[in-house]
Design a protein around this nucleic acid. Structure first.
Lengths: 141, 141
DNA sequence: TGATAAGCATTAGCCTTGCTAACGGAGGGG
DNA sequence: CCCCTCCGTTAGCAAGGCTAATGCTTATCA
């Protein structure tokens, strides 16, 4: 496979990913949470307890921005923010049961919408897509 | 392929797409444009001249929000906004040469970064990924 | 030890991005 | 001609983004 073909795959994968997430984003209306808050909550749930700086870095945002987002999530009881034992400068942000449940419900809506779209595919196509996704997982890891 | 497997593919595709775009987003720093402006510009370039309402809908945003974003893009000479001949209530938003060029440069950075990652794959894997992308394009269209 | 530096989060203050409500000009139907 | 609808903008508010500066805590080292 030549360079030009790799470039072609990359460009089309890029476009498809954008279109896919743009479509699925519409499912987030029901969550009652804005995109930045939902994304931050997702990171806390999936990547376990994090410091503010870690969370800000993961979300590609500066610490003051993340500090306010965490304020709002704490306010709604979706995460907790406690001083880290052993280094009281730092803070541990962890998901609550409510936070995990809210995220899971949203994820179900998104994944459900995607499953519905996959229903239009033939069995062999779904298998080929599954194989592609396995490879994509290695690329993004 | 059972329902559970389709759900598994959907969930993993979803996660991978999020991780992929999160990674590639770092390439946008060099554009000098915020994410909403870049995204709106992209839509104007790719989907040709659009009315404000069409652009707002495509970007999943309300008209007043898009009106200000277009203000900024016009200010920088990246798009033009002219009254539509035949219906002067409406407006035609079109990309300028500068706008197209700026977008293309950013797209090159993103795609280039992705190509570099694809370089780690074996030839057969890239082919399988290409096949998956073809199917994904049909799913998202 | 005691001073000083470095690290982490927050506060303050600014601009942008999102919304809804309200307005103003342009078309269309009676 | 009048009304009504349609499109975009303006006004004003909450949230999200930034940098600069503050306040503690911890680490360093003389």
């Amino acid at each position: 496979m030549g360079d030009g073909e790799a470039r072609d795959v990359a460009a089309r994968l890029h476009s498809s990913a954008i279109r896919l997430l743009r479509t699925l984003r519409r499912e987030d209306d029901g969550s009652g949470l804005s995109a930045p808050r939902l994304s931050a909550l997702s990171m806390v749930v999936l990547a376990g307890p994090l410091s503010l700086a870690e969370l800000a870095t993961a979300e590609q945002v500066k610490p003051p921005t993340m500090s306010r987002i965490v304020d709002a999530l704490v306010e709604r009881g979706l995460v907790t923010r406690v001083a880290k034992p052993g280094d009281r400068r730092s803070v541990e942000i962890a998901a609550t049961a409510d936070g995990r449940q809210l995220l899971e419900a949203g994820r179900e809506r998104r994944v459900g919408a995607l499953v519905k779209r996959l229903g239009a595919l033939a069995d062999s196509e779904r298998r080929a897509l599954a194989r592609g996704v396995e490879i994509l997982e290695r690329v993004t890891r």
